Amino acid sequence: MLAFIGPETPLENLLLTPENSLVNQALDPESHPELQLAGWGFGAWGEHLAHPEKPFIYRRPMAAFYDDNLERIVPSLRASTMLAHVRAAAYDAKVVLADENCHPFSFEGTRWIVAQNGYLPGWQILQRELLQHCKDEYLKQMAGSTDTEFIYVLLLSLLEGDSDEDVQRAVEELIRLVASAMDKLDLPGLTKLKLALVSQDRIIGVNAGLGLQGETDPTGDWRELRKSEPGTDDFSLSMLLEPLYFLMGRKFEEDTSTYAFEQCAEDEATGVIFASEALTEDTDGWSQLDFGHIVFLRNEGGRVTKKVEALSV
């Protein structure tokens, strides 16, 4: 996943031209064992869109690099707020490839859209306990069959407002409710909640989840655990505990061909990228959002602010 806020910037500078661009990650992800072939999509706000206060949403259930619309749509758009995602799915006939299962998800009645690299095991059964916390206005908008869309419903239902504090409380309550439901139904399992919650000029990034036994405080060195074979418990735990990334800078909009925007001090930054993987092979300058933390990024009057908090669950 990839999110951006800042000056209105050509969308291709964010999605196509970086050396480890999101589209390239669909075929060659740096930190994921599976190809991202099950679909892709993006939501974008821009001053020159017909409805700049609403996100332009595009989703398609095919690998991004096979999408014949990619070279037609993306180079024509500029965005000041953007959230994009490429979807991984197991090679299984049960996986439903449809627009409705592609991220980002966007419902009426909320300013937030969402995408995640995550996994909620047994979520259909966990609904026995979790549906009581979901509001009808969001449940009736569910159109797909993914755990992410259900998490979106649950999170929106728990929000009491749109402040940073409201969002953090809702995320913490969501984690507690999932852990409690797993315990009550005896369905413990590793749960990844690596979320980007985006509205115009705001990004809230979440790096959270539950351990292999449903514990709220999993620990370990993700780099050491990553040395295990894909498919093992240790490898799965490494993917839970690994960081997310963000990079603050300026002059994004002036670079029309490459990704060489200008890095600067945080108090001079005019834009920020939040991503599941760094978009450059060299990660110097990229900050990490460690497991168990939430980051609040906001564009206020042309300057980007950052606040990182530890989640309390």
Rank of each mutant, 00 (worst) to 15 (best):
A38V: 06
A260W: 14
Y152M: 04
M62V: 14
P61C: 10
S106I: 02
E19G: 05
I73L: 15
K135S: 14
E172S: 03
R87E: 02
K306N: 04
S76R: 15
H51E: 13
T270H: 04
L131P: 01
S76P: 02
E71L: 14
T283R: 11
L131N: 14
L241A: 08
L2D: 05
D67C: 11
I294Y: 03
G271I: 02
L210I: 08
Q127T: 12
G292H: 01
L197P: 00
F291E: 01
E229R: 13
F274L: 13
F246S: 05
T110N: 07
E229F: 11
G231P: 05
Y259F: 15
V313N: 06
P104W: 02
Y245I: 07
T305I: 03
N207A: 10
E266V: 10
Q127I: 09
D217H: 15
G271A: 12
S312Q: 13
N101C: 10
A93H: 08
T191E: 08
Q141S: 05
N117G: 04
E253C: 02
I57S: 02
P7I: 04
G46R: 07
F42R: 00
L197N: 01
F4Y: 15
H51P: 01
S31K: 12
S80D: 15
A115P: 01
R298S: 11
N101A: 11
G46D: 10
F246D: 00
K251N: 15
V272N: 04
H133Q: 06
D282A: 03
R223A: 10
D136M: 09
G285S: 08
F42Q: 00
I175S: 08
H51C: 06
L225N: 06
M248C: 10
I5H: 04
D28L: 15
A196M: 13
K306V: 13
F107T: 00
Q116R: 04
S163P: 02
K140A: 03
V313M: 03
D99M: 09
P18E: 03
E253N: 09
Y152S: 02
Q141L: 05
L244P: 06
L83A: 01
R202A: 02
H133Y: 15
L139Q: 11
L120T: 07
T9V: 11
Y91M: 09
A84D: 01
M248S: 12
Q132L: 09
R60M: 09
F56C: 06
C134K: 06
Q25T: 08
M1A: 10
C134Q: 09
M1D: 03
A181T: 03
D164C: 06
E281G: 12
L279M: 14
V86K: 06
E172M: 05
R128C: 08
L83P: 00
L212N: 07
P188R: 04
L158M: 05
F65I: 12
T110D: 04
L156G: 06
A38Q: 09
L297C: 08
W45E: 01
L225G: 12
R202I: 00
G39K: 13
L190N: 07
F56W: 13
D28G: 01
F105S: 02
D282T: 06
T283G: 00
D67Q: 07
D186I: 09
A88H: 11
S236H: 13
R298H: 12
S163G: 05
E71W: 12
M62I: 14
K184S: 14
S21A: 11
S31G: 10
H85N: 04
W45K: 01
Q124H: 13
T258M: 10
V114C: 00
I273L: 14
S76H: 11
